[in-house]
Design a protein around this nucleic acid. Sequence first.
DNA 1: TATACGATCACCT
DNA 2: GGTGATCGTATAC
Length: 191
Amino acid sequence: MALQKNFYRRETLTVAKQLLGCFLMRKIGRKVIRARITEVEAYIGEDDLACHASKGRTKRTEIMYGEPGHAYVYMIYGMYHCLNIVTEKKGYPSAVLVRAVANSCEYVHKSREWREIHGVKTDGPGKLCRFLKIDKKLNGWDMTKGEKLWIDRPTPRLRSGEKVIANKRIGVDYAKHCRDYLWRFSLDYSK
DNA sequence: TATACGATCACCT
DNA sequence: GGTGATCGTATAC
């Protein structure tokens, strides 16, 4: 069962932290890929100078003003895509950037048996989109439908010994005081 | 219409 | 640590 709108319609920092440990699901043809989310970042409102919506409502940022649970996919540096999930109530521009997923698993329609994929780099926002074939065609996609692209929450979400840590966001040095917000969250395994 | 630059990555030293 | 690739978007003219 895909996570529903109620999950995404809450405070962005809460959604971001609770997405850690969840499975990013991607169905391509008869193949399903399941990738555990290990790092995210929050981008919250027009006052967040690192958020694309700090420029206001434009054609590009329109999706962030829309329904929670939809995908916001944009191209960066002319060659990579980044996947975000829109959060909070409609009209409030905010989203969670999926920065990294762990070793991916996949099954093909016939086998229904999960197996790990080796040698795939999914430890960056551009890399995971390249691997999961996420591009602007999925911009605006409703991720609560459980088709093509969605999120599943396992039970338990966090495994033994795991905890959530907060750090500064990456690549937003231009964002004045907002660059120092501790809005990047990762799974941590050390004690 | 023209220009500057970015929520990145891979490869180099 | 530093840099080039490469193009959509916002902004300036």
